[in-house]
Amino acid sequence: MSIGTAEFAPDEVGRVDREYAARTMPMRLRTIDEAHEFFDGLEPAEPGIVQVHKWHPDGKGEDGIRDEDIAMYGAVARTP
């Protein structure tokens, strides 16, 4: 699952959100706490819910990518 967020660059992502709204295109940005709610009752795979450029099961993230440039959390989960 990928989940849009404005937590790392609120001004820039806020402009995108306003543009979507002006075009009546639904978009919902969420905080990390709200992202966790999608996974209630599930078993998230490591590394859990992180920004998508940091989601690597081998623990090796992408070097050189700034958090401010990525407006999305990602995770994979299994049913128990």
Rank of each mutant, 00 (worst) to 15 (best):
G61F: 03
R30L: 11
I65V: 12
I49N: 05
G74M: 08
G4Q: 13
A77Y: 08
P44H: 12
I32Q: 09
D17N: 05
M25W: 01
L42G: 10
E68T: 06
T24W: 05
G14N: 02
D17R: 13
G64H: 00
R28E: 03
L29R: 10
P47I: 15
Y20F: 12
G4F: 14
A35W: 04
A45V: 06
D17G: 03
P47R: 13
E7A: 13
W55E: 04
A21R: 14
E19D: 02
I3G: 11
A45Q: 06
Y73A: 07
R18S: 15
G64Y: 01
E34T: 13
M1W: 04
G61C: 05
S2R: 12
M27C: 02
Q51T: 11
I3M: 15
G59A: 14
T24A: 14
G48N: 09
M27D: 00
R78S: 13
D17K: 11
T79P: 10
A75W: 12
R78Q: 10
A9F: 03
D67Y: 10
T79L: 15
I70E: 13
M25H: 01
T31Y: 08
E7Q: 15
E7G: 08
E19K: 04
G4N: 13
H56A: 14
D58W: 03
R78W: 15
Q51Y: 03
A21H: 04
G4E: 12
E62D: 03
D69F: 06
I65C: 04
D58Q: 10
D17A: 13
V13S: 08
Y73D: 05
R66T: 09
G64Q: 00
E12S: 10
D17L: 14
P80I: 15
G4K: 14
M25A: 08
A77H: 05
F38P: 03
V50T: 07
M27N: 00
D11Y: 00
R15F: 01
P26C: 09
A6T: 14
T79Y: 15
I65T: 05
G61Q: 09
D69Y: 02
V13Y: 08
V76Y: 01
P10M: 02
G59D: 11
D63E: 06
D63M: 02
A75H: 12
R30V: 09
S2Q: 12
D67L: 12
E62S: 06
R18P: 02
A71S: 13
G61L: 05
H36E: 04
A22K: 13
E12F: 04
R66F: 02
E7I: 09
R78D: 08
E34M: 12
E37L: 04
E62P: 00
F39H: 06
E34C: 14
M27Y: 00
P47G: 11
E34Q: 15
I32N: 06
H36A: 09
W55P: 01
S2P: 00
F39L: 14
A75G: 08
I32M: 07
G4V: 11
E62M: 08
R28P: 00
V50R: 05
E43R: 14
I49V: 15
